[in-house]
Design a protein around this nucleic acid. Structure first.
Lengths: 369, 369
DNA sequence: TTTTAACACGAAAACGTTTTCGCAAATTAA
DNA sequence: TTAATTTGCGAAAACGTTTTCGTGTTAAAA
């Protein structure tokens, strides 16, 4: 019934590895079975136009040769790639990698792939990366802005991308100027909660270790700290606010960080609570505090942001504000894909953008009472 | 001199956002300038076939409209995507994310993008992910094998991919059966070094906390442990070898882990050194040991594999074997791209595969004397 | 038997490039 | 002036799909 003549298939008489069979195309199947390309295509998609007989013949042949439609050709034809571009500052970072996990999860579930670009906190790399991907490789972006970009406040690459009809979803480090969907945590609220916990556990002199203000989340967490103090009628003291310039000089940066924290403790002997805007600041503070003879949580309690591997596994384990990175990623992916697939039907949708706030949770562990 | 009539450009009379200018194509430029597509293409690539005049005209117009060649069309035409597929078990993992950093670094430098798939340690997801990408989306793979795959020892998806002419580079978790380039660390040697350090620092009763043997790296590190003992004429004791079944039930897994380690200590009071095959086992061991009243490094010294965030920042900081994940990633990317670009010129290259060993380093910190 | 309808398939366009080849017009040489 | 070049550009193919439309053949209806 089916008589294929396999031998004439490969033009090259033989390939180096004996089993080598290069990816087969519709055209080759058509030639082999002596039908047209259209017929093959239709047969594989079970079109009623094709007779039962040829359909089976084609499908059997395709299966035998493990035919799979070429993705690139499909992308070109459909003018969409089913691929999402992710641009993040760095990947060796608990929070960002959990976000990617979330994105990948729903992207895969909804038939999309993810392609990752790292800005390494650099404006130029962010721009280059976006340009590389925006030329047809992807359907939309999910990104978190590089520190340098935030500092320079130059967002033209975002607006251009959006103007070319490519949707963006920003998460965590976002800016209001850009019209796009956003997924954020309520940093202010999370910080308030964290500081509130310290107050409730009896802290009277709570210091904050945070970043310089241009890092949006640092600023917001500082704001939350201040609001929490106010709410509890505690007068904030400038000397209790330590703003770190993080130049990512990770090596000597750590030394400097320790020095600055040590200075904080030494010039404020009464500190009994620390709110750190990230894990590293928190564990470093604990380290310094211990060296100075403070006991955790007895004489010093610590709360940090970002429920990462350090919080969970260092000793003492840290009470932290969990940002639910995976949930953020999932939501961002859903927002983006929804928009991509909405565009299909109704091109002139009223463009109204959403900002989704993912609730934070305070995870209590050993660093607080 | 150049008189473009921009207005006739967009077929749709107006788009929703005022500035909206969709990506422009060669065809549109050609139409607008009333020349052929070929002319536009050549003009943009500075072909000598095109007169100075038209060349400038075309280039000016292209610049004005910010023309960029469509990547997908190029991929289809050139039959290569300049994209590398990465498949790893998980991304929220210090080692893997450093490897990605390395891959991305050289990939970008050499004009490639990276697309990431997560197997989540599952055989099925690994297969699916590879199939999704192998249909034209990428030029080659860099991957580390899922635990489930290692357990089942079913590698058909790798051989099929390779037989279709798509190169693979494996790293860290590799299998010898598959003919491809590999980048590994010398786990045996690294483990020997680590255990050697413990011996040199005076440990007499060194226990190992490792994984079940099907995880290749766990097995090798155990082997290194045994070899080190032998080398120092220490008789290994089965009761000092704790093999953890890691079902990734991270929550209750941690509890169980602690229980097992506690049992280890209790039934071997004389333990004065621990070699853990990963950071988590190490910090957990320290935590348990402390609870039992042991002091680090005074009465118990600890060395672990993987120089991650826990090793650096927990207290005490950990003496670890650094695997140089970034270097691994860089090397893997170079190997893959070399092979991809070699294939171009000389299709029938003698297929000889390389296994590159990246040297480990022992980083001494506070958990050893 | 003739007309109509159903059936089965192929040609061609389109997605956006690059590149080979051919062909007119303009320039130079004879 | 005629012949031989050079110059400048366009047509078309190719990459691998999907889909619309047209058409010849066969079966059913008149």
């Amino acid at each position: 019934m089916f008589n294929f003549n396999k031998n004439q298939l490969n033009k090259k008489p033989q390939n180096h590895t004996p089993l080598m069979k290069r990816k087969i195309t519709l055209k080759q199947i058509a030639k082999e079975l002596d039908v047209s390309i259209s017929t093959v295509s239709k047969a594989l998609r079970n079109s009623v136009e094709i007779s039962e007989d040829t359909r089976q013949k084609v499908q059997a042949f395709a299966k035998l040769y493990n035919y799979r439609p070429n993705n690139i050709a499909l992308s070109l034809k459909n003018r969409k790639t089913k691929t999402i571009g992710i641009i993040i500052p760095e990947i060796v970072h608990y929070f960002f990698s959990t976000v990617i996990t979330g994105i990948e999860l729903v992207a895969n579930k909804r038939g999309y792939n993810v392609i990752v670009g790292l800005s390494n906190e650099s404006f130029d790399k962010e721009v280059i990366n976006m340009q590389m991907l925006a030329n047809g490789s992807i359907d939309g972006f999910i990104l978190s802005i590089a520190k340098e970009t935030l500092l320079q406040q130059d967002y033209h690459h975002f607006t251009e991308t959006i103007n070319q009809g490519m949707p963006i979803v920003m998460f965590d480090r976002v800016v209001n100027e850009i019209p796009c969907d956003k997924v954020v945590v309520d940093d202010v609220k999370g910080a308030k909660q964290a500081v509130g916990k310290l107050v409730a556990s009896g802290c009277k002199n709570i210091a904050i270790i945070t970043t310089k203000d241009y890092v949006s989340v640092g600023k917001l967490r500082t704001q939350g700290y201040l609001e929490a103090l106010e709410e509890h009628k505690i007068h904030p003291k400038a000397s209790l606010i330590l703003k770190i310039e993080d130049k990512l000089l990770s090596d000597d940066h750590l030394d400097k960080l320790e020095k600055e924290i040590e200075l904080l403790f030494k010039s404020n002997k009464s500190i009994d609570g620390i709110f750190a805007v990230n894990e590293l600041y928190a564990v470093t503070a604990i380290k310094v505090a211990r060296k100075l003879g403070l006991e955790i949580p007895k004489s010093l309690q610590v709360v940090s942001f970002t429920d990462g591997v350090l919080s969970k596994h260092s000793t003492p384990s840290l009470t932290t504000v969990s940002q639910h990175g995976q949930r953020i990623g999932e939501k961002a992916a859903d927002l983006l894909i929804d928009r991509l697939e909405m565009d299909e039907g109704d091109e002139e949708e009223e463009e109204v953008y959403e900002t989704v706030v993912i609730e934070t949770d305070l995870i209590e562990r050993e660093s607080t009472k």
